[in-house]
Amino acid sequence: MESTFSFIPNIPIDAQWSQNGKTVAGGNEKGDAPNQFKKPCGLFVDDDQTMIIADFWKYRIVQWKMGDTNGQVVAGGNGKGNRLHQLNGPTDVLIDKATDSLIICDAENRRVVRWSRHSGTTQGEILIDNIDCYGLFMDDQRYLYVSDYKKHEVRRYQIGDKNGIIVAGGNGEGAGLNQLNCPTYIYVDQQQTVYVSDNWNHRVMKWNKGAKEGIVVAGG
């Protein structure tokens, strides 16, 4: 089975970065035209550098190929709503290569949904509901990690499981090492170590697999 996981390359310690960035998607004021966004949030970059972007206030997921001047709506884009062909405030998205589908944090609808990438797809399906999700990640074993910014926790799910297990936080809102406060985006490495943007604690936390508390690795 092809891995769903994108590895971070080894970056030399003396790597040099360009002093100026360049716009690769959007940059044409806010709006709903094919070359515009309104509050783009999470994104996923595929192996061929195609970007999949959650366009929060336009209730859609946009695919943008590197070098293109316009994006393509690949999920939602049918106005704000909670029907299966609609999204409401998507905050994050990833590609599940095993099923060639998008998994989307449909935040304002309090659900995680899946949309096939096959042509002709007109609606998604609900994977997890009644969750105040914000960030998503899938590891190389196809475990899905989801942050819940109101329960102040991150859970790990097998696809099809609606309950999951807590892998970070879950001890109420707070600044203790066993707590989170509005967790948003997440990353998981090969050892299933979970890195969490702990938003209102102004820090990034690292939770080793099975740990009861995290380690502050940035900010705090």
Rank of each mutant, 00 (worst) to 15 (best):
M1G: 13
M1A: 14
M1N: 11
E2Q: 12
P12E: 07
I13E: 14
D14L: 08
A15V: 12
A15W: 08
Q16T: 13
W17K: 12
W17F: 15
W17S: 11
S18I: 01
T23S: 04
G26P: 09
G27T: 03
N28I: 00
K30E: 13
K30S: 13
K30V: 13
K30F: 11
P34H: 05
G42Q: 10
G42D: 06
D48W: 00
M51E: 04
Q63E: 13
M66K: 15
D68H: 14
V74I: 15
G77F: 11
N78C: 10
G81R: 02
G81A: 04
R83D: 10
L84F: 05
L84D: 12
Q86Y: 11
Q86I: 11
Q86R: 12
Q86P: 13
L87Q: 08
L94I: 13
L94R: 02
E108N: 15
V112W: 09
H118S: 13
G120N: 06
E125Q: 15
L127E: 08
D129T: 11
D129G: 04
C133M: 08
Y134M: 06
G135K: 04
G135F: 02
L136M: 01
F137T: 03
Q141I: 09
K150F: 05
K151W: 08
H152S: 10
E153W: 03
E153V: 04
G160Q: 06
K162E: 05
K162G: 05
N163H: 14
G164W: 01
I165T: 14
I166S: 13
G169V: 06
G169A: 09
E173L: 07
N178H: 10
L180S: 14
Y187A: 15
Y187D: 10
D189C: 00
T193P: 04
T193S: 14
Y195E: 02
V196K: 05
D198P: 10
N199W: 02
N201C: 05
R203I: 01
W207S: 00
I215T: 15
